[in-house]
Design a protein around this nucleic acid. Structure first.
Lengths: 174, 174
DNA sequence: ATTTTACGTCAGCCATGTTGACTTATATGC
DNA sequence: GCATATAAGTCAACATGGCTGACGTAAAAT
């Protein structure tokens, strides 16, 4: 690593440095992720704003919808935010009747979270554009590309525990 | 669309609804994007915080680095934020000596932006983890998967103008 | 000469993250 | 049974990075 010296922008006078190409390729991927995420969230954000909500509310709705009965601390582990931040969002969703809590049976300290019917409806409305966008991208790219897309994103995701989410078909039961 | 009625969570008593599988697949993609983005930004955010900067600063550094001589309004078009928001970030980067402005020659109202040497160094430091993460994911997934990854992300990105960024090899000259 | 464009700036608002301190109820381990 | 640990909630204060709206200046375009 220390013996490779790149010129300021990687291109030497006598041709193109292969490490420069590599860097370009990696930065292109960074941009693809940025643009995709930017466009992926634009529409949902606009719809959420009409309800006085934000992106954080959507994330909660989504994961509660996919894992009915999820506990607060499990949700915290997924979102990687503080409980104070989550509580604000969760409180608003409960107050407006999109999320319900019930006490855990095995452990009565837990609050098991679930979407109400209204919560399901809202989540569907908010995510409609995202699902359509992915459906379109998948359709255009083909099954093989979809496999590659999954593989690479999985490689970007950090730890084993999170990756495990994508190994089994259904949500974890409680 | 109106004639297809899904049971609450898509699974009927007599087998699995193919539309449910489809929905699961799309939601899985949503989650992959979320987790990848979450983990992709965690390390850079930590480094930036040590410098008193945030994610917004990194985005500016990145795009200025890739498009030396970019104008303020071009950068605004890429980031899709307001000029007031960009100005705050840009002002801090200039003040601390990571970004330089010079007056446009063709149009003297323009401020052409470029990284200083310190700016380049900082950007490299901040993006090192991201590049390593992508390099690892690319290596593990293989060339074919990388092609698929690009194809699908490109399909998710909204408009023709933005996609054009990924069609040519080099940054646009000015 | 007028209008439009590129950029900058001031002021204030909101969403969403943070830290730190503290409380309550319940489980768990000795 | 008591001590400790855990799940969740709460209050307060703060930072970042978006936003709107209003206004200013210089230069280009018509």
């Amino acid at each position: 690593m220390a013996d490779v010296k790149l010129p300021p922008h990687g291109a030497s006078k006598h041709g193109i440095n292969p490490l420069f190409l590599r860097d370009q390729e990696l930065r292109q991927a960074m941009e693809l992720l940025f643009f995709a995420y930017r466009d992926f969230t634009a529409e949902p954000d606009a719809i959420l704003a009409q309800h006085g909500f934000g992106r954080a509310h959507h994330r909660a709705l989504h994961f509660i919808g996919r894992h009915p009965g999820i506990t607060v601390s499990e949700l915290l582990g997924i979102l990687r935010i503080t409980k104070q931040s989550l509580n604000r969002v969760l409180g608003q969703l409960i107050e407006k009747g999109y999320v319900e809590q019930r006490q855990g049976t095995r452990d009565r300290r837990q609050r098991l979270l679930a979407l109400t019917a209204a919560g399901h409806t809202l989540e569907e409305r908010v995510s409609a554009d995202q699902r359509a966008r992915i459906a379109k991208a998948y359709r255009e790219a083909g099954a093989e590309a979809v496999e590659g897309f999954r593989k690479v994103l999985l490689g970007i995701i950090a730890g084993a525990p999170d990756r495990a989410r994508f190994e089994r078909p259904g949500p974890p039961r409680r």
